[in-house]
Design a protein around this nucleic acid. Structure first.
Ligand code: ZN
Ligand code: ZN
Ligand code: ZN
Ligand code: ZN
Lengths: 168, 168
DNA sequence: CCTGAAATGTTATAAAATCACATGAGGCCC
DNA sequence: GGGCCTCATGTGATTTTATAACATTTCAGG
């Protein structure tokens, strides 16, 4: 899309991590959350979350649709959009507005308003924690009387790997 | 789009302001900036900015296209997208990712990375100032080695007017 | 004037998201 | 278990948003 896409291997926090374990952990967390809140963690929804976790990068709705179709589910856009909507609504995944894409939550369990760092070169995305009503937005909201219900904070730039590549 | 759209009259900062004067001021500022930097502030671009300033709210690309076509310019999408691209690139306008729409900059002149508060009820948008590398993002970037090139910070919620309406 | 770079206009197409409606699977009461 | 209601799924069609590709025009600089 941009230029040199060479998708390196650790998009989560731009650093190595226990990728094998984090899938099981996240799925288990989602399962528990759904059981506790009377939500239906159906096969499509589970599969969608598994794909997000396995890929470990931002996935477009239509790319997800391909994956779901290949897995034997429906083949029309709403299939993907509905599964993703469920995952986002329950905090299992996030939408990256800048990319029109979705990514599994890197900090499952905790209620949080995430902040993302998006590499414009390799498209990797890192998720940082954020406080909903802090920083510039909290101040501005307080000053004007705006009631914040949700925030989206995204930074575009170069991840450590790509920055190093660019410098050389 | 959502539900009760009653677009109140002061979307800028959720408060009254000298709307008549701010158009001329902003246009003049843009004109000066372009003259100084050797940019061509062409009729379409000027018209597009005037529309954004006059409407004083987030405008979709296709809505802008309608306005431009009615004003005698081209009638195809690239006409609007190119004008808006120019305005955004030079800081005269911003794109609200959450709305897929554009809005005139409320703080022309100053180089800044804006933060927006978007009312989910009346769609009004307020622009607050922000420092590129401060707050949660700056910390996270420093910790991971991410080089921030641009940020987008948007909050969705209720503006003071709509919050009051909802409370009653 | 000549010329090259930037801007405009148009056709066509791609990408992203939603609408509308039929069918199917579960939970619940009896 | 059978009836019933709700939510989830599947599909076709459409809308909305955005870009590609290319011909033509405009304009500053020489
Ligand atoms: Zn998260
Ligand atoms: Zn990178
Ligand atoms: Zn601004
Ligand atoms: Zn409002």
């Amino acid at each position: 899309m941009t230029s040199g896409n060479s998708a390196h291997s650790d998009p989560l926090g731009f650093e190595a991590h226990d990728h094998a374990g984090c899938i099981d952990t996240a799925i288990a967390a989602a399962e528990a959350h759904c059981a506790e809140h009377g939500l239906r963690f159906t096969p499509v929804r589970r599969s969608a979350l598994e794909f997000l976790l396995r890929e470990h990068r931002a996935i477009g709705a239509y790319e997800m649709l391909d994956l779901l179709r290949d897995a034997g589910y429906g083949s029309q856009p709403p299939v993907a959009y509905r599964a993703l909507e469920f995952l986002v609504a329950n905090g299992f995944a996030h939408k990256i507005e800048r990319l029109n894409a979705f990514i599994a939550c890197a900090h499952p369990g905790a209620t949080h308003s995430p902040a993302f760092m998006i590499c414009r070169d390799c498209q990797s995305v890192a998720e940082a924690h954020s406080s909903p009503a802090r920083g510039i937005l909290g101040d501005a909201a307080k000053a004007t009387g705006f009631q914040i219900e949700g925030t989206m904070i995204e930074a575009v730039g170069l991840c450590p790997t790509c920055a190093q590549k660019a410098a050389s």
